[in-house]
Amino acid sequence: MRNALRTAGMLILLVVLAAALVWVVVYWNPEPRQVNQELNIRRAPVGGDFELASYQGPVSLRQFRGKVVALYFGYTQCPDICPTSLGYLSLALSQLSPEELAGFQGLFVSVDPERDTLQRLKDYGEYFNAAILGITGPAEMIDDVVRRYGAAYRKTETGSQMGYIIDHSADTYLIDRKGKLRAVLPHGTAPEEILAALRKLLREE
């Protein structure tokens, strides 16, 4: 009897171990360690204030209280995605009245501080609209903003002649006059939809 119990116990142990082994083999898939502090896991956006650098000096989200802010993460060497996002945004902005535009600020956060100088970011933002300011900062500070807004980016070496490129999320974050994150517009959102979302927030006090 005792032997039978022991055998049963051993069998159960064996089954449990085998199951554990199967689980490890099938499901345990550790991500390769990232060398750089780059964020490739998107989190739920919470928003919040931040301070980064512009050609005019430090810029904080707080100083745009009273304005509706559109926040976007990208880099100026981005060949297609950023110009598309900013192009659509600029088309929406071109529909705003001067009064409405006065209540708006665009912030383009470069996740490529290595290559994007503050002067370059100034020119890049203004190319799309004078109300779009290009800003950046040290990687830790960028990563903090990226994390809080649920964005993501990853520097990637490719075989391309371009040198490194940066994979990045391409959503536009709309922040209301009180500094609260209110809308996340996915990449490809049409200008008229961006316009409607902006107007909705611009109408608020």
Binding site: T84, Y88, R182, A183, P186, G188, T189, E193
Partner: peptide
């Protein structure tokens, strides 16, 4: 620059932004 006409036909069916 971006073409407004083409863009509208391409993007007309896109989903609306998620409003939190």
């Amino acid at each position: 620059m971006l073409q407004m006409k083409k863009m509208q036909q391409d993007m007309g069916g896109m989903e609306h932004g998620r409003m939190s």
